[in-house]
């Protein structure tokens, strides 16, 4: 049943995407009135689908690629809705909603055959570990979005083109504030996620967990996060520099994600 709700959510998100693009780019307030309720509707069904999925599988954390993608997609939509309600920056939907749809398509189309029967599956610590790290990824993706939009607006203002096509871009200060908030929130989530993960690994694997490639990359990621925060506080992290650093951090995120293939700590014995 949860897959039906996922498909309904995907349809709502597609409607939100299709209306957000013209609403933002060509300033159509009527379409905007459809876009936001559609995104909210999608969020509702998506949330229902995930809760139902976790309840049916009797575990409290996403397992397998499809479930993780689905949760990450939901977190991106949550971040988007927060940005809309806090800053009225609906323009973020141009990036956030298509990414959410892309992440949702595979879980919505076919079931995940991942088998994960470790007793740790119902551990609150593991839930905290996975949930906090996914929230950190979503925050980093949002930080990258806002840095990109900042750069576009900066170039528009510097070129003095006054292009009507990009007139929808929010003010620089809004993008800066979103970028700063998402970095700070993401850093806290990542710290929490890594601490929880370290505790679990210390107990189950022992000190050797620190040599695992995924763990090493995750800590590198944490250091990078710290470095970005330091840059922002000391000399400011805006414009081109912010896009470069955020893009690099995004690449590291993808590497961390992909490192599951090499990680022994993140392999759990089957039944």
């Amino acid at each position: 049943m949860h897959q039906l709700w996922l498909r309904v959510a995907a349809i709502f998100y597609c409607a939100a995407c299709a209306t957000t693009l013209p609403a933002v780019l060509y300033r159509r307030p009527r379409l905007q009135r459809i876009a936001l309720p559609a995104a909210l509707g999608g969020f509702f069904f998506h949330f229902v689908a995930i809760v139902e999925m976790l309840v049916a599988a009797r575990h409290w954390m996403p397992v397998g690629m499809h479930e993780v993608e689905s949760v990450l997609s939901l977190l991106i939509v949550v971040a988007y809705l927060l940005v809309v309600f806090a800053y009225r920056a609906t323009g973020f939907g141009i990036f956030a909603l298509p990414v959410a749809v892309l992440l949702l398509i595979t879980p919505a189309v076919g079931p995940d055959h991942a088998v994960f029967v470790s007793p740790m599956i119902r551990s609150g610590w593991l839930f905290l570990h996975v949930g906090a790290l996914l929230a950190a990824y979503a925050a980093l993706i949002f930080s990258l979005f806002s840095s990109l939009l900042y750069l576009m607006q900066e170039q528009r203002l510097k070129n003095k083109s006054g292009s009507a096509f990009l007139a929808w871009l929010p003010p620089l200060s809004v993008m800066d504030s979103i970028s700063s908030t998402s970095l700070t929130v993401g850093f806290h989530c990542m710290t929490l996620g890594l601490l929880a993960g370290s505790l679990i690994a210390q107990q189950s694997v022992g000190a050797a967990y620190f040599l695992d490639p995924k763990v090493l990359l995750s800590f590198a990621m944490w250091v990078l996060y710290l470095f970005m925060l330091f840059l922002r506080r000391s000399v400011g992290l805006r414009g081109r520099r912010a896009v470069y650093v955020s893009s690099f951090a995004f690449l590291v995120v993808i590497s961390v994600w992909a490192a599951n293939l090499l990680s022994s700590v993140h392999r759990f014995p089957g039944p």
Binding site: Q153, L157, L169, P170, P171, L172, S173, V174
Partner: peptide
């Protein structure tokens, strides 16, 4: 208007 594009409020 340009100042608002930079600083918001």
């Amino acid at each position: 208007e340009l100042a608002k594009h930079i600083f918001g409020s």
